[in-house]
Design a binder for these strands. Structure first.
Lengths: 158, 158
DNA sequence: GTGAAACAAGATAATTAGATCGAAATATGC
DNA sequence: GCATATTTCGATCTAATTATCTTGTTTCAC
């Protein structure tokens, strides 16, 4: 609805890395397996994240990916603008090329505050905060195992 | 960022129809020309809008498209759910298949209120209100002519 | 050296956007 | 009434974008 699948995978992967002990390189394969996303595609995304200076990569044996120092403070806005391009928040809801305070689409004034809330939410969510939430066990960054889906609606509990 | 191009075109076209005198069928060609969008593609979208009971269509000479009676009260949510499918607002920001109050991604609680604001904005914006805004001349549903782009930065005024 | 891993670039698949074309319908002129 | 121009309808086809896979190379620990 808002983010491309690429951005979603990038965020999930970075959160996962942030939940792991710092300093130990993590395999792309492991991340992909955990998240249940295609490893080859994820590898490409991880490369972008390296080029964008969010990750370190180590080749060869004992290789893998690590957060850069201070990387726990990376916020979602940084990740998203890296993937979708800066200014992805500037797009007009109705798709107009030019839609600013001066000359706008009829949704502009109402949409602007919502957009601002989205931006500040993306800014305030940092990898460390998200990692804590995941480590607490209250939240997930990967899908439920199929078996569990709809488990609540199953009175027998299987 | 939020809506597919198809939804954007659908909304633009419906607003345009709503600005025109009711009862007079409007040509797809005219709408496409005004909005500056591909006519063939728009025609397809118009068909969906007819099937979704938002528009009437008339074939042959003097044909064209009209809002259905009461159509001025159509809100953007109706249009969008027709095009993108109902439940497009239910998607998880991080792309999880299941993300509800019971079991969620770490963004869920913060994202939910924003999502609700988006939904209510889409609900409160009806075609007649948007049409009024456009007819007032304060807002646009089509792009500026190329010549005007950046006109403000041109001291000579060309 | 050898094997495990990231790296790079391209090929393929899926989805979305847009174009084409032959109908079917209908107001209008004759 | 009948031909005709005008328009939507419907189905299919192409192009562009996005997501995914493949293959080979480089790097590094052992």
């Amino acid at each position: 609805m808002i983010l491309s699948r690429t951005s979603q995978y990038a965020i999930q992967a970075l959160i996962y890395v942030a939940t792991q002990p710092a300093g130990e390189p993590i395999l792309n394969r492991k991340i992909a397996e955990y998240l249940g996303v295609p490893a080859a595609y994820l590898a490409k995304i991880m490369q972008s994240l390296c080029k964008g200076n969010l990750l370190y990569s180590f080749r060869g044996r004992q290789g893998g990916f690590c957060l850069r120092e201070g990387g726990e403070k990376t916020d979602l806005m940084q990740i998203v603008s890296l993937i979708e391009g800066v200014g992805f928040t500037e797009y007009c809801v109705l798709g107009l090329k030019v839609c600013s305070d001066e000359t706008a689409c009829p949704m502009h004034t109402k949409w602007k505050p919502i957009k601002e809330r989205i931006v500040s939410l993306l800014h305030e969510q940092t990898l460390d905060r998200l990692a804590v939430a995941v480590k607490s066990g209250k939240y997930r960054i990967c899908d439920l195992p199929m078996a569990m889906m709809g488990a609540e609606t199953d009175p027998a509990g299987v």
